[in-house]
Write a protein that binds this DNA or RNA. Structure first.
Length: 646
DNA sequence: GTTTCGGTTCTTTTT
DNA sequence: GAACCGAAAC
């Protein structure tokens, strides 16, 4: 009788308990920031299990790996090991897990590879080049990919979107469609899916194979969805199918915190839930345990004017403390100086560095901050723009694994050969063609052929790979990804890194960390499968390990979602920075930026500092004068205390 | 014909 | 950083 001891009504407040104990059928939980959303979901799982539901019949969907892990960990603590049978993870993970069994039903083989952003980018680039469209004014691969991705996640035709986007430009929309067609075809022939394909094909699988859908519907008696406001069209359709009309679907979200519309998220999914699920019960969580009333006052005020939302006001339970600080200063350097001074003072007051965070709109806003922190010898961690598994050196040492796992992986082949001297893209393609579009290094004949085809200078590098490949069977390397990476690094990559990068040591440390991380996988496939869907190792790292070094954290607001700190600094509260000028071009719509600001404000528990520099130094030595952010101007001055941040 | 090298430019947000 | 470009080197 595990879990029988849980005292639901003592552990939860009334709002939470009502949601946790909601009867079967569709349920919408509007959970404002800091109101115990995760707690509610976990106790809901516990409650279901206690009422006799087998965890294997529960599906729990999240957006980030971090959220998935946190929930599964906490659920395990609460309910016990029996929850390990629960299906929990990101939408992409779950789609992948299901597609691995039924890929042939949507025209793929089950051992398809997953393309990350980087792979997708180079594939689009190749397609563009092959169509001879790669001139200066043609959209860059990232632009094309975001267009294709947006079309996929909103189920809208690419040509319409392309028309809208490039209407007043000299770009021929047909060319964009040609690249799209080539990209799609290429993915098919490589047996590869990008992130969007996982969702698209996951949905197709259920739409086109009702018998399969029926099977999974029977399995998933209860479906729970976290961050529902961030679902896009295909995700919400997928959830609708799995749950079925009137099904046991509980979604949790906060329309105030919808900040992913640029990648197809549609917060109307949450607004229209009651209409799409007639009879759905709705619960609101508005009691905030996180922040002092002064911070909540600012949060409530800043968001109230947005159109189209479930109106709600955060209710404070904490005692009154101090008002948020608006600090004005001359430029980015003074801003950095101010923040560092405050960090020091707060540390002296007893805050730990890890209690504090510096948030900003875009990665490059943190540049001066990083410089100053480094100069003054203050340790910090930053979740940078490039994710751990997409850094060049991490991808480099993973290529061999990819090739072992899938000898038809052209992208991996080209990347591997590109590391070797006197081999660039052209030569790599030539050799790939000569190999007959396949390179199974585990076969001796293949290795012999490779040796014959390679130009002289690449011999040494090849030998390193040759030796590893020859021992694959003998040393059971297919079951030991870390060992492959280790041998490859030792025999080749360490030297390569030292010749290529001035920060080779740090990169080699990363590789050690990667090897460390791989130890939890007992096959190359399992490792690759997992890694393709991961974003950064930070989220996966042992929390105990992280607490040992007491660092202030720098992060974008997007990446800070769902987290909290005692002290929060928000940088660059100026027009054009936050809100970002990039977002404001169309029709003056700033609702999403305002929601982003709301997310930033509600991360703070005790103290909040808004920094507003008056100007920004430009690269060419010029100056850019900034006006204060509209998000500050909109607020009544008595919601904050103003200081001069010098 | 390819690769390499050195200098220049630009950074929205993520699975 | 890292993607890009043009020029030098192989």
């Amino acid at each position: 009788m595990r879990g029988a001891g849980i005292q639901f009504e003592q552990a939860l407040n009334e709002e939470q308990w009502a949601a946790v104990s909601a009867p079967d059928g569709p349920v919408l939980v509007i959970a404002a920031a800091g109101t115990g959303k995760t707690r509610t979901l976990i106790y809901r799982v516990a409650w279901l299990v206690e009422r006799g539901i087998d965890p294997r019949n529960i599906l729990l969907l999240t957006f980030t790996n971090r959220a998935a892990r946190e929930m599964l960990d906490r659920a395990r603590t609460l309910v016990g090991d029996s929850v390990s049978g629960l299906w929990g993870g990101t939408f992409h993970h779950m789609a992948n897990r299901i597609l691995r069994r039924h890929a042939e039903s949507v025209g793929y083989q089950n051992d398809y590879t997953i393309l990350d952003q980087d792979d997708a980018r180079s594939l689009v680039k190749t397609c563009t080049k092959e169509l001879k469209l790669a001139d200066k004014h043609f959209p860059k691969p990232d632009v094309l990919l975001s267009l294709y991705g947006f079309a996929a996640s909103t189920e809208r035709p690419v040509d319409r979107l392309a028309n809208d986007r490039f209407e007043h430009t000299p770009i021929d929309v047909n060319d964009i469609l040609k690249v799209h067609a080539a990209y799609e075809k290429r993915k098919r022939s490589l047996n590869a899916m990008d992130f969007d394909d996982l969702l698209v094909n996951g949905l197709r699988l259920f739409r086109e194979h009702p018998a399969l859908l029926e099977r999974y519907r029977e399995q998933f008696v209860h479906t729970l969805v976290d961050e529902y406001q961030d679902t896009n069209t295909i995700q919400s359709s997928w959830v609708d199918l799995i749950a079925g009309p009137g099904g046991n679907l509980l979604v949790v979200g906060d329309d105030f915190q919808s900040i992913y519309s640029w990648r197809g998220a549609n917060f109307r999914n949450i607004l229209s839930f009651p209409e799409r699920y007639p009879g759905a019960r709705m619960y609101k969580l508005v009691t905030n345990y996180r922040s002092v009333p002064e911070i909540l006052g600012m949060a409530n005020a800043c968001i109230a004017g947005n159109p189209e939302q479930f109106q709600k006001t955060l209710k404070a339970v904490r005692e009154s403390y101090q008002k948020p600080v608006l600090a004005q200063m001359r430029d980015g350097r003074e801003q950095a100086g101010y923040v560092i001074d405050r960090l020091r003072a707060l540390r002296a007051e007893g805050y730990r560095m890890s209690d504090m965070v510096v948030l900003y709109r875009s990665h490059f806003h943190a540049l001066e901050m990083q410089l100053e922190l480094a100069q003054r010898g203050m340790p910090y961690t930053i979740t940078s723009g490039v994710r751990f598994f997409e850094q060049a050196h991490i991808k480099d040492v993973s290529t061999l694994l990819r090739l072992f796992s899938n000898p038809g992986d052209e992208l991996a082949f080209q990347r591997l050969l590109g590391l070797w001297p006197r081999i660039g893209q052209k030569t790599a393609i030539k050799i790939w063609n000569a190999m007959g579009h396949r390179c199974d290094l585990r076969k001796e004949a293949t290795r012999q052929r490779m040796a014959d085809l390679l130009p002289g200078p690449a011999r040494d590098a090849w030998n390193a790979v040759d030796v590893i490949a020859a021992d694959v069977e003998k040393d059971a390397l297919m079951n030991d990804p870390g060992e492959v990476v280790h041998r490859f690094t030792k025999a080749f990559y360490a030297l390569y890194a030292k010749e290529t990068y001035d920060n080779a040591d740090r990169r080699l440390e990363d590789i050690d960390e990667l090897i460390n991380y791989t130890s939890r996988f007992d096959s190359i496939e399992a490792f690759l499968n997992e890694v393709a869907l991961l974003t950064n190792l930070d989220a996966e790292m042992d929390p105990v390990e992280k607490e040992s070094d007491d660092c202030v954290r720098l992060s974008t607001v997007h990446q800070a979602k769902g987290l909290e700190w005692r002290v929060v600094f928000i940088l660059w509260m100026a027009e054009g920075m936050f809100p970002s000028s990039r977002t404001l071009n169309e029709a003056g719509e700033d609702a999403e930026e305002r929601r982003l600001f709301y997310v930033a404000v509600t991360r703070a528990k005790d103290e909040l500092y808004l920094c507003a520099p008056r100007c920004r130094r430009l690269r060419d030595g010029g100056m850019n004068f900034l006006s204060p952010s509209r998000f500050i101007e909109e607020l009544s001055p008595d919601l904050m205390q103003q200081v001069r941040g010098v």
